[in-house]
Design a protein around this nucleic acid. Sequence first.
DNA 1: ACACTCGGGACAACCCGTTTAT
DNA 2: ATAAACGGGTTGTCCCGAGTGT
Lengths: 223, 223, 223, 223
Amino acid sequence: LVLQERARATRESIIFGAAKVFEERGYGTSSISLVAEEAEVTKGALYFHFKSKDELARAVVEEQHVIVVRAGEGILEQRGTALSTMIRLCAEFGYQLATDRIVRAGIRLTLEASAFGHKVRDPYEDWTRTMVDLAERGMQAGHIRTSIEPDALARYIVASFTGVQMVSNVLTGREDVMARIQQMWEILLPGIMHEDSTEDVHHLVDLVPKRWNGQDFVLPASA
Amino acid sequence: LVLQERARATRESIIFGAAKVFEERGYGTSSISLVAEEAEVTKGALYFHFKSKDELARAVVEEQHVIVVRAGEGILEQRGTALSTMIRLCAEFGYQLATDRIVRAGIRLTLEASAFGHKVRDPYEDWTRTMVDLAERGMQAGHIRTSIEPDALARYIVASFTGVQMVSNVLTGREDVMARIQQMWEILLPGIMHEDSTEDVHHLVDLVPKRWNGQDFVLPASA
Amino acid sequence: LVLQERARATRESIIFGAAKVFEERGYGTSSISLVAEEAEVTKGALYFHFKSKDELARAVVEEQHVIVVRAGEGILEQRGTALSTMIRLCAEFGYQLATDRIVRAGIRLTLEASAFGHKVRDPYEDWTRTMVDLAERGMQAGHIRTSIEPDALARYIVASFTGVQMVSNVLTGREDVMARIQQMWEILLPGIMHEDSTEDVHHLVDLVPKRWNGQDFVLPASA
Amino acid sequence: LVLQERARATRESIIFGAAKVFEERGYGTSSISLVAEEAEVTKGALYFHFKSKDELARAVVEEQHVIVVRAGEGILEQRGTALSTMIRLCAEFGYQLATDRIVRAGIRLTLEASAFGHKVRDPYEDWTRTMVDLAERGMQAGHIRTSIEPDALARYIVASFTGVQMVSNVLTGREDVMARIQQMWEILLPGIMHEDSTEDVHHLVDLVPKRWNGQDFVLPASA
DNA sequence: ACACTCGGGACAACCCGTTTAT
DNA sequence: ATAAACGGGTTGTCCCGAGTGT
């Protein structure tokens, strides 16, 4: 139906506008009117699709969630060693953060979750679980040291990635995320790879792409 | 003078109230009236000491800054190997985050900086610089592998710590930060210590205290 | 459309309420809440139609402008000697000031213009220009002495009228404006009419109506 | 006593600051804090000398009153024909308005009197009375036509002057008041002088000084 | 179903005129 | 004469709903 098609477009436009505003200002200092303006939609239309500011924020987070999960599943379906999958997941997520406004907005909102009513732990726990699985697989395959607890490793990788991405955001607006992700793994790998592993650190690290959108990654500025 | 003493008390009380509110709700969703109520102070008094919400937030951040820097300097003055100093710095900062409301509020505000007008890079860069120095000292002393660039290492430790602390906040309200910090170093150390180093990983990791305020650290829940 | 009709009514009601408040208290000491109350409208409605106090004041001034200009054009279209037109313009404007709250408010606001952001010279200059034209026509027709510069005459008449109306306001709330306008012309005419003019002073002065709204003009009280 | 001397200086400085602020912004939009700042005085000091904003405004008006009255008496003591005295009074008052901030502020406040609690008619009535006296003297001396009522003439001159000065303020910030006052009398005199009068219009008009503060009067711009 | 105009009312940040204690 | 505090009031915005139109 034509109407529904238009409605879909409106909804999408609203979500995109909301992502822009939320990303820049966070939940609290954003306003519905600004979103409406940014999305070139009247407030009436906005309130037809989302019945509160809260729900709008939730919709952005939801949208981010499906984007990220879909991409993650794509990676998980490819086969490859556990370590390479871990790295590819981080690279993919970093790429999304660098390029997709909705993902960035979703992350910011998730972080400020206390400002509106949002369950925030699920995504962290989901992702950690995935990492635990991979860690265990990597140990069974003899690629990852068994002196480390898989739980602890998974938790740390998730936290570490979170920090890398956030600091990159604060300092460069995420222009240098990809390079930072590479460096994260360069430092991490020697400590977690099994000493007998046949995998090569450099080769693994190169799973983080060197170019993006046809342009080279920005390198982190020296402090 | 008595008056100035009262003023000091009022000011402090406001800062503390503001820290409470900002910590819980972030900048945007906090309101001056709520801060005034929390601090048991009239709005008049509040606006006498801080001439805008923005300035109030800045004052909290500032306060956090001095607390953290002072503690950091205390650590730096003690002598010890570079690695042990790095770990102690993280432990100390983690401890502050676990116990001091002003520090927690300051960190949250720093992170949401874009919501108000705040320079946010300086503290990250300062801290990174300190870590670079320590990394270089550690390498010269033969404790840290020279295959890693000191810059990259410093940047990563800062980011990593940031993430650890934040994820701990999201999942447990920072109840398990200290344990997470320990695990972070357990995983990191084997990868960055020089193979000939005489230092012992376990000994180093134990620099992160096991008890706090007389109670044991909460362990991170398995995912 | 029903909605737009309601909106028009609301807007008008706001302007009228604003005129009442501004007339009585001037811009600075008026408050939006008072206007809303006077207009029996919520602040939401008020701010829907006017996005600031400033804009509200401007709207009142604007409204006054069209009322006055429309009336002025009505006079200018009638034919009559230049002098009679001048007098009729003053009479008409005086009448508006005596009877129309919006006109009174507009004049007060114009005068206090520096209190808000308003261009205030245009109306004076417009009116002066009209008077210059009339003065020149009156000279060409041989009714006005040519020993006076038309510019100077026009400027003075405008200023003089302004003063008459204002002093009447201060002393009697404009109850005696019309009589004062008559007296102004009685005194002025002998000095500006050409000695050969066939026009009669008394006849001209009687162009200022003696009755208004069915009641006689109030005479100025002796000092 | 030294203390009283300092108090006097403070008080004067406050009045001067208040005059500056009130002149620029009117009563309503002015604030005590701004006055204190402008006068370089604490609010406490301000409230020691004047116990309310209202009283401060009144003090400015009062000050203006004595300045103007004193100057007026100076003129009245000089002897000269009634007409020349009238003109000199206007010239003097115009000069004050052009040069003295307190006078300007006082006039503005008087005009906005309804915004605070101020009796505003007295000065107008005083001045009118003076003009009535002069008008009667001028008629007895045979210089002013007796066809005009002295009351009406006095009232009109006061109103007319008021308007001239105000329009000059709106259009040029009173830079051209003096020239406008001259023109006012050029136009008025022929209509009110007795036909047998020996006084010369040009000579009279020249009582309004051509220079001021060593600089020529600004001429009114053509409309 | 979808969209828009208009309005409601609570509340935000901030400031203002004023007083109290010193 | 001052520093500090007080409350209440100011302008303005925000989130949202009610009613109407397409």
